[in-house]
C-alpha cells in the first residue's frame, strides 16, 4: 500500500484537520466526538440538515457542509458508519429549534447508528426526522435483501434539502422534499479498479487486467456482474438503459444528471462519459436541465464512475439554482 498518509489509524482525523484549516470561513470541526459543522451553526428557526456515513467518499459528506447544503456531517472511519454519539452531538449543534433532518444512506450500519442517535436526541426534546436514500438500481430491491443502497442521489438530496431549509421551509416540508427527490432518483456505478482501505492495507477485491465490475457499490461491494472491458460508449449505454428502465424515465422528462467519478478516474474520462450520456438522453426525448460532472461520491482511489438521474420539477430546479457555498459544491454565493 502506497498512500499519502502518516498512520492508517489517523487518516480520517488528520484529513479533517486539513479540511478545517482549508475552509475556516465555511465550517469548523469538532474532534470529540467527531463531526463537521457550519461555521455559523446553529441558525435559530432554521431546520438543520445532517448527513453522515463512512469516510473515504469525499467530498461527500464533510465537503458538503456549508450554506445551502448540510448543516453538519458525521464522518465515520473509512467505509464505516459514524457512531450515535457523533450524530447526537452534531444534531444538538445544529438544532435551531425548528428540528433536524437526518439524511441516511441505506446501509444496515448507518441506519442502526442513526436510529440510536435519533432516540438519544428525542429524549432531549429535539425533533428529528429521518429519510433513507436508496437509489442504486444495481441492487435488486426485494424482501430478501437490505434493500437498495444509497449512492449518488444523496448528493442531490443534500443539495436540494439544504436549499429548502435555507429558504426557511418547515421540517415536514423539507422531509417530504427529500422523499420526493429519493423517489425520483436512480443511480448505477461501475469500477475499473478496486481500492484499498488504509487500515486494511490491501485492495478490497480483485479485478483482472481487462475486467470491470458493473453495478459496483461505493464501498467496493460487488455489483451485478463482472464482465470484460468494453468501450465507454457501451458501458454508458448499459448503465443508462438500466437506470432509465427502472423509474422509468420517459419522453418529456427533465432531469438533473450527475456523472460522478469514483476517485481515481481522470476528469477527462468523466467528461467523455457525459458526452456519451447527454445525447443518449436527448435521443429519448429527455432533457438534461442541470448537471454535475466530477468527483462527488468517491470510493478512495477506485477508478470508475457512476451515473445518477433525478426527474426534476420546477420547484427542484429552482432550489437547485439557489446559492450554495461548501468546499465541494459552490455557485451563486
Amino acid at each position: 500500500m502506497k498512500k499519502l498518509i502518516n498512520d492508517p489509524d489517523r487518516v480520517v482525523l488528520e484529513s479533517l484537520a486539513g479540511l478545517a484549516l482549508a475552509h475556516p470561513e465555511i465550517l469548523r470541526v469538532s474532534f470529540d466526538p467527531v463531526y463537521v459543522v457550519r461555521a455559523d451553526a446553529p441558525r435559530p428557526g432554521k431546520v438543520g440538515v445532517i448527513s453522515g456515513g463512512g469516510s473515504g467518499h469525499e467530498p461527500m459528506h464533510v465537503g458538503f457542509v456549508g450554506r445551502g447544503m448540510l448543516d453538519a456531517a458525521c464522518p465515520g472511519q473509512v467505509f464505516t458508519s459514524p457512531t450515535p454519539d457523533q450524530i447526537e452531538a452534531a444534531t444538538r449543534a445544529v438544532d435551531g429549534g425548528a428540528g433536524v433532518l437526518h439524511i441516511i444512506k441505506n446501509y444496515t450500519g448507518d441506519i442502526m447508528n442513526f436510529e440510536m442517535a435519533a432516540e438519544l436526541c428525542r429524549a432531549q426534546g429535539i425533533t428529528v426526522r429521518a429519510v433513507v436514500i436508496n437509489d442504486d438500481v444495481a441492487v435488486e430491491d426485494s424482501l430478501y435483501t437490505a434493500g437498495r443502497r444509497g449512492v449518488g442521489a444523496t448528493v442531490l438530496a443534500e443539495r436540494l434539502c439544504g436549499a429548502a431549509a435555507e429558504r426557511g421551509w418547515a421540517l415536514e416540508r423539507v422531509e417530504a422534499l427529500c422523499r420526493r427527490v429519493n423517489a425520483a432518483a436512480r443511480s448505477m456505478g461501475m469500477a475499473l479498479t478496486p481500492c484499498t482501505v488504509p487500515a486494511a492495507g490491501r485492495p478490497n477485491f480483485q479485478l483482472g487486467p481487462d475486467e470491470i465490475e458493473m453495478g459496483i457499490g461505493i464501498h467496493g461491494e460487488p455489483g451485478r456482474e463482472r464482465t470484460r472491458w468494453r468501450p465507454a460508449r457501451e458501458i454508458v449505454a448499459r448503465m443508462t438503459e438500466t437506470i432509465l428502465a427502472d423509474l422509468p424515465f420517459e419522453r418529456g422528462d427533465r432531469v438533473i444528471a450527475m456523472v460522478n467519478g469514483m476517485g481515481g478516474t481522470p476528469l477527462m474520462e468523466l467528461y467523455l462519459v457525459y458526452g456519451e450520456l447527454q445525447p443518449l438522453l436527448e435521443a429519448r426525448g429527455i432533457t438534461v436541465a442541470r448537471r454535475l460532472v466530477g468527483n462527488y461520491v468517491t470510493s478512495l482511489e477506485m477508478a470508475g464512475c457512476s451515473i445518477t438521474l433525478v426527474k426534476a420539477d420546477d420547484e427542484m430546479l429552482s432550489l437547485w439554482d439557489d446559492p450554495v457555498l461548501t468546499p465541494g459544491l459552490r455557485w451563486g454565493a
Binding site: P33, G76, S81, P82, T83, Y107, T108, G109, M112, M116
Partner: peptide
C-alpha cells in the same frame, strides 16, 4: 462499543 466500533457491529454488540 457503541462509541468506537461503528458499522452495524457497534450498535449490535452495544
Amino acid at each position: 462499543l457503541i462509541r468506537h466500533v461503528g458499522g452495524a457491529a457497534g450498535p449490535l454488540y452495544g
